[in-house]
Design a protein around this nucleic acid. Structure first.
Length: 939
DNA sequence: TTGATCACG
DNA sequence: GACGTACGTGATCAAC
């Protein structure tokens, strides 16, 4: 074989991508009103390939029409395919135009499918010694994988080789055709053999080697039904194989040599792009080159492509050209004064603080950066040890940076910053400004008023993507930021920011403030346009100082009690370890699910084990062990051991480690922009998952206590999510029940199953309770069955009965699904938007998952809105009555306060009143309050 | 770094 | 008819 004249051939499955791009992206239209979402998606994919691949030959292959040679073999082949959606039809020719505009070859041939042309070119290229990559995710092309031929799915950014093919079909690529022939394909109308799916087909082919052998020896098959269907459908299987097998001998219209990758003609390409109104693509194409004449002002946000909806798959939008930067290191008083004065004159300044730890309460201020205009920022070092960290050889020689500029005295800096940061006429913009508020607060600075770009992004596109600065900079500004890791290193070698040399610190810190300011320019104006001003200004921004105060307050834990529990748990664990290894007959690591699975299902041969499809590991979850418990003494002991291990390591030990030595309390951190629904999350430590459900676990909660002379007060919303369901869906039966203040699960049981509440069987109530919860989660028969340990069929009957009694719930679910399909997001009562990714995914399981998430989001998010409203009002409401209670914790539907003993009753009344009045619904809100020395008893 | 497990609402 | 599941989180450990 001679050396190929080219090395790597890319063959793009054009038709496949048209459909995927169309379904993956929200509707958008060009200036003429023609829909172009598929065109946009296609171009994005093509550009990615052209810039990121090593292709030296590349062509896009399309289907020429519907009729192919396969219809002569089997007239019904692909006969029931619906016509393409109306919005897609005009895009077929536009996409061909787009490909040509990129100067990329475009091939199609009547009578053959694109797949046959791809098979033929792939064979030719491979025979010439070139590497081939088929760009597609179509399983029908997987038969071609092997040798020099591979596949690449650009949407998932995933290489598909023999291993991935095996994962999909459970056979090697050369047997894929036989498996498909047996299994058939309903979407293409390939008949296959009835009753045989991919799983069975793969099993048969692996056993008999190939389709012909299998059909010849079909008589040997043990299962009578399978034997007969195979024998009587042998011909169908052979025809199916002809339909499925790709032709690699098509007389192709163009030779491979024509597919050279060429530079596009700039004018032609930009002409086409402008005609379609793809400004972000234009920006990318012209990036790095002299900016086009008369660039727009950078902070002015462009309007988006008309009708476009932001989706996680792509955020089509304007990407400003790069900004020239001018960053100044501030080490002179005069320079500092100049920046402070300029900031006060500007009326808006982006602020970012650098510290030597991520814990805002234990760190020192290392530096402050300010930005006043795009590209114009400064860094004011406060505490820098130059590059001392690098100087392991500091034997008398001058320390690196020791001769360089020195920070101004901290007191001078703080005094001057106060004029700017506390000026009520100057808006301070931060990214996750709660952190900066904490740090600057420790220096005696009360920063206000504020804006937060992280929260702006969160209210605009929660659920669509993360809201970290690096991610937003890339997304909205097309700018890749310097990462913290690049400045400070990662892992063991990581240094604290005060050890970063000043020049690097300047580049990193000033950029953060600069980017924050530029993000603010892009995001803030969108609030008005997208009706999110209220959510931002009444639910998110005012919560920042409230949460900052809660974090600063922390909560007292009984250290000695936690330590003695840790010792006790450890002792009891060793006892279990001894027993368990005795029962197993070998020493092993009980904490290793892998080893435990092997003991249970291979050594002890217990029944009912299931290996996970993904890793092939035995499942050993609590539900599995619970089932095994009656059969053998070991599983129960493992369950008990696990409970203790969890309590010891995650709670007892970890909480003690987290006690702040300065306050003797634990201070959690609340994340405001993590969840897709609007909830907060808590970490370091997570105080939203402290045990309560078991007696043993509740002992941990008993260690959360109040200072002497104080009590803990816990106030929680009763059934808030179910109340929201009743209100939002307008379920009359449930609304009445809540108004009457009855036991809601018992009433539900009574109304759905027709039994009286008096003397009701607790198992009936339990079922009703499970359905009520299921409704909140976007119910499925499978999920309910799993929860209650009943059959799918029985679960379905319950759900049907529930829907029949409360028909409004079905309308709500249908309405929500329709809405999320159309616009990609749902909203809460208070207007919070929640994007739900995957709703138009081609995988039905993904879609079903997204539908359930969409049903849940307005409920969970609505409840989050309500408690946020209460949290914002409570500090003022308490102060107004002269009460000094401090709010310490939020656990989704519960607030915990530390209250002086003399103020308990007054505080109880205010908290209950404010929380219950936080929303006005068709159902009453009920808040239950408890007061005690520990959290366990107060709850 | 990823997956399994389990703590919470 | 297949997909593979209740919704939303974070911490820990084992195993790559």
């Amino acid at each position: 074989m001679s050396e190929a004249p080219f090395k790597h051939v890319y063959l793009v499955d054009g038709s496949g991508f048209i459909f995927r791009a169309f379904h993956a992206l929200p509707p958008m239209s060009n200036p003429d009103g023609v829909p172009v979402n598929a065109v946009f998606g296609f171009i994005t994919m093509l550009m990615k390939l052209l810039t990121e691949s090593d292709a030296d030959r590349l062509a896009v292959i399309f289907d020429a029409g519907r009729a192919t040679f396969r219809n002569e073999i089997y007239p019904d082949y692909k006969a029931h395919r619906p016509d393409p959606p109306e919005e897609l039809i005009p895009q077929f020719s536009l996409i061909r135009d787009a490909v040509r505009a990129f100067n990329v070859s475009c091939v199609e041939m009547p009578g053959f499918e694109a797949d046959d042309l791809i098979a033929t070119y792939a064979r030719q290229a491979a025979e010439m010694g070139a590497k081939v990559t088929i760009v597609s995710s179509d399983k029908d092309l997987m038969q071609l994988v092997g040798g020099r031929v591979g596949m690449f799915d650009p949407m998932k950014n995933r290489q598909i080789g023999p291993a991935e093919v095996f994962e999909k079909f459970s056979v090697s690529p050369d047997k894929v055709v036989d498996v498909q022939a047996l299994a058939g394909d309903p979407t293409d109308n390939v008949p296959g053999v009835p009753g045989i799916g991919v799983k069975t087909a793969a099993q048969l082919i692996n056993e008999y080697g190939d389709l012909d052998t299998l059909l010849a020896r079909a008589g040997e098959i043990k299962q009578p039904k399978r034997r007969e269907t195979l024998q009587s459908n042998a011909e169908a299987a052979r025809i199916s194989r002809q339909l499925v097998r790709l032709r690699n001998d098509v007389p192709v219209p163009e030779p491979l040599e024509n597919f050279t990758v060429r530079e596009p003609d700039r004018d032609v390409l930009l002409g086409f792009i402008d005609q379609q109104g793809f400004r972000s693509i234009r920006a990318r194409l012209t990036n790095g080159q002299p900016a086009p004449a008369a660039g727009k002002p950078l902070s002015a946000p462009d309007s988006r492509i008309s009708g476009a909806v932001v989706m996680p798959e792509a955020t089509p939008g304007p990407v400003p050209a790069p900004v020239a930067t001018d960053y100044e290191l501030v080490v002179e008083i005069a320079a500092l004064d100049r920046w402070i004065a300029a900031g006060r004159k500007a009326g808006i300044v982006a602020v970012d603080t650098e510290t030597n730890s991520l814990d805002p309460l234990r760190c020192d201020l290392v530096g402050v950066s300010l930005a006043l205009a795009p590209g114009r920022a400064c860094y004011i070092p406060v505490l820098h040890n130059g590059g001392a960290a690098q100087g392991s050889l500091d034997l008398g020689g001058p320390e690196p940076g020791a001769d360089g500029p020195k920070p101004l005295p901290k007191a001078d800096i703080v005094k001057r910053l106060k004029l700017l940061l506390e000026d009520p006429a100057v808006l301070k913009v931060g990214h996750n400004i709660k952190f900066d508020l904490q740090v600057l607060g420790s220096c005696g600075l009360a920063v206000a008023p504020i804006d937060d770009t992280m929260l702006l992004s969160y209210v605009l596109e929660s659920g669509a993507h993360g809201h970290g600065m690096d991610e937003l900079s890339a997304l909205y500004l097309g700018h890749k930021t310097i990462t913290y890791g690049e400045v400070c290193g990662t892992g063991k070698a990581q240094i604290t920011f005060d050890r970063v040399p000043l020049d690097k610190a300047l580049a990193y810190a000033a950029e953060d403030a600069d980017i924050t300011l530029r993000l603010h320019g892009v995001l803030k104006p969108r609030l008005v346009a997208e009706h999110l001003v209220t959510v931002y200004e009444t639910l998110e921004r005012p919560l920042v100082p409230v949460l900052a105060a809660m974090e600063r307050a922390g909560i007292k834990v009984d250290k000695a009690e936690l330590q003695s529990m840790s010792v006790e748990f450890g002792r009891r664990m060793s006892d279990f370890e001894r027993d368990i290894c005795l029962l197993a007959g070998v020493e092993f690591n009980i904490g290793s699910p892998k080893q435990l699975g092997e003991i249970l299902f291979e050594k002890l041969n217990l029944p009912g084990g299931k290996k996970s499809a993904k890793t092939g590991a035995w499942g050993t979850g609590a539900d599995v062990l619970e089932q095994l418990a009656p059969l053998h003494p070991l599983p129960r002991k493992v369950l008990d051991w696990r409970q203790l291990a969890k309590l010891k390591s995650t709670y007892a030990d970890a909480l003690v480690d987290q006690i702040n030595p300065a306050t003797g309390r634990v201070h959690t951190s609340y994340a405001m922009a993590i969840t897709s629904t609007g909830r907060l999350s808590s970490s370091d430590p997570n105080l939203q998952n402290i045990p309560i459900r078991t007696e043993e676990g509740r002992r941990i909660r008993r260690a959360f206590i109040a200072e002497p002379g104080f009590k803990l007060l816990s106030a929680d919303y009763s059934q808030i999510e179910l109340r929201l369901v009743a209100h939002v869906a307008g379920i009359q039966g449930l609304i009445e029940a809540f108004k009457n203040g009855a036991d809601i699960h018992a009433i539900t049981a009574s109304q759905v199953f027709g039994v009286p509440v008096e003397g009701m069987d607790q198992s009936i109530r339990r079922k009703a309770k499970a359905i009520n919860f299921g409704i909140i989660y976007g119910i499925s028969a499978f999920g309910l069955a799993q929860q209650l340990g009943i059959s799918n069929g029985e679960a379905k009957q319950y759900i049907d009965a529930y829907f029949a009694r409360y028909p409004e719930i079905r309308h709500y679910m249908d309405r929500t699904k329709e809405q999320v399909k159309k616009q990609g997001w749902v909203e809460t009562l208070f207007g919070r938007k929640c994007f739900v990714p995957g709703i138009n995914d081609r995988n039905p399981a993904m879609r079903a998952f997204a539908e359930r998430a969409a049903i849940n989001a307005p409920i969970q998010g609505g409840a989050a809105d309500i408690i946020k409203r209460a949290m914002i009002r409570l500090p003022d409401a308490l102060a107004a009555e002269g009460l000094t209670a401090r709010m310490l914790l939020q656990v989704h539907d519960e607030l915990v306060f530390e209250v002086p003993e003399a103020e308990i009753e007054a505080t109880r009344a205010v908290v209950k009143r404010v929380m219950e009045a936080a929303a006005s619904l068709d159902v009453p809100l009920l808040v239950e309050v408890g007061v005690a020395a520990s959290w366990a008893e107060a709850h």
